[in-house]
Simulated scan of single mutants.
Amino acid sequence: MKARSLRITEATQGRLRRLNLYTALPPILLAAYVVVAVDVHAWWHALVLVPGVLAALVAFERWTANDIGRVALPCLVVAAAVWPLGVLVVGSPNAYWGVTSVASLAIPRMPRHQYVAAGALVAFVAGIGATRLLVESGVSGGLGAFQLLAGADDVLMKFVLIPTGVTLLVIVLSFVGERFYDIVQELEASREREAELAVIRERVRFAGDLHDIQGHTLHVVKLKTALAQKLVHSDPDRAADELREINDLVGDTIKQTKELAYAQRRLNLSAELENAKNLFEAAGIRVRITRESEPEAGVSEMLGQVLRETTTNILRHAQATQVRVTLTASGITIVNDGAARHGPPELRGLSALRQRLVADGGDLAVTLAAGEFTTAAAFPAGGAR
């Protein structure tokens, strides 16, 4: 169960990160373009700034694939080298963008010392930005004190305060985003536990039915066997009657047990619909039931068995987020998403039900398409034979 929960939560996180790739990549590309277009004033400036932009884009793409750890260090080294070169050589106040982007993706995923690393990032951005004052003071050596002070204020704003403030904001938002993914993981694990509990409750219900059938019978058989043993010599005819009753009782129990094992006991389709709805909702799965018309009496019980078996299969084998149930006069269709990409699992229960439906003149089809698993049972007009 642990392995399956981990697989499901990773799949959910993967979907969220891919969503981030589709929604956040355009503005990130725009920001990268602005960094290069605004600060490049000579062809060789691009040689300095573009590596930082590429490192940020590579790190972001790997982050969406949940693989940031493999590229974090090389991307961070490249982006961190671009910032001082941008400050001291190119005079680019936006060259911090690469190192801030890479670090904001990598630091929240660190196993420990996350806040120390975040503080070091902010200090690095601020400290490197402040070195621009050395360059400006050398260039402005001939200016007056007032002009020099005004120039220093402008440098502090563009190279220190704005980069540091943006870096701090981005790293805080990154920590918040990672906590969001943690919450999603916890909710997904909780949903999986609910689904497992739903299956366990179904098994307990089955065990209770089996106990009701066999428990009483075995108790009666024990009493009648003891009575027949006492009567076998004193009253052989009475003992023979008891043995015949035991034989009939055992035969009836075998029949009921077979009916239970193959879901052949009489079912109430409306009750099964309500039970399926409750089980899906308990597992965090959205469910929509459409009753176009009521099925004929001859097929209602069989459709209830199909619904019960399919409900169990969805809870056990799928990573469903929504289920659609459509009921017609002669059939039922259950569609769920979250189907396994490698193909549908082996569903022995549905295979046995299909044989019964075919024998009664109906059909049961299961299909997998576009990540959705469809179970459709139908009888021809006129119902089951």
Rank of each mutant, 00 (worst) to 15 (best):
E296Y: 10
E296C: 09
E296R: 14
E296S: 11
E296K: 14
A297V: 10
V299H: 01
V299T: 05
V299D: 04
V299C: 05
S300W: 02
S300M: 09
S300N: 03
E301D: 12
E301P: 03
M302F: 06
L303T: 02
L303N: 06
G304P: 04
Q305Y: 03
Q305K: 13
V306S: 04
V306F: 09
L307A: 12
L307Y: 08
R308Q: 12
T311R: 00
T312C: 00
T312L: 08
T312P: 05
T312M: 05
N313S: 14
I314S: 01
I314K: 04
R316Q: 15
A318Q: 10
A318Y: 00
Q319T: 09
Q319H: 10
A320G: 10
T321P: 03
T321R: 11
T321S: 14
Q322S: 14
Q322D: 11
V323H: 09
V323C: 07
R324I: 07
R324S: 11
R324H: 08
V325W: 08
T326H: 11
L327Y: 02
L327D: 07
T328E: 07
T328P: 09
A329Q: 13
A329C: 07
A329E: 13
S330V: 00
S330F: 04
S330D: 09
G331E: 03
G331F: 01
I332E: 06
I332D: 03
T333Y: 05
I334M: 11
N336F: 05
D337K: 07
D337H: 06
G338L: 08
A339V: 06
A340V: 12
R341C: 08
H342K: 15
H342W: 02
G343C: 05
G343K: 07
G343T: 02
P344W: 13
P344G: 13
P345I: 04
P345F: 00
P345V: 03
E346R: 14
L347Q: 11
R348W: 01
G349R: 05
L350H: 05
L350Q: 02
L350S: 02
L350M: 07
S351T: 14
S351A: 15
S351M: 14
A352E: 11
A352S: 07
L353Y: 01
R354K: 15
R356H: 11
L357A: 11
G361R: 14
G361W: 09
G362K: 07
G362F: 09
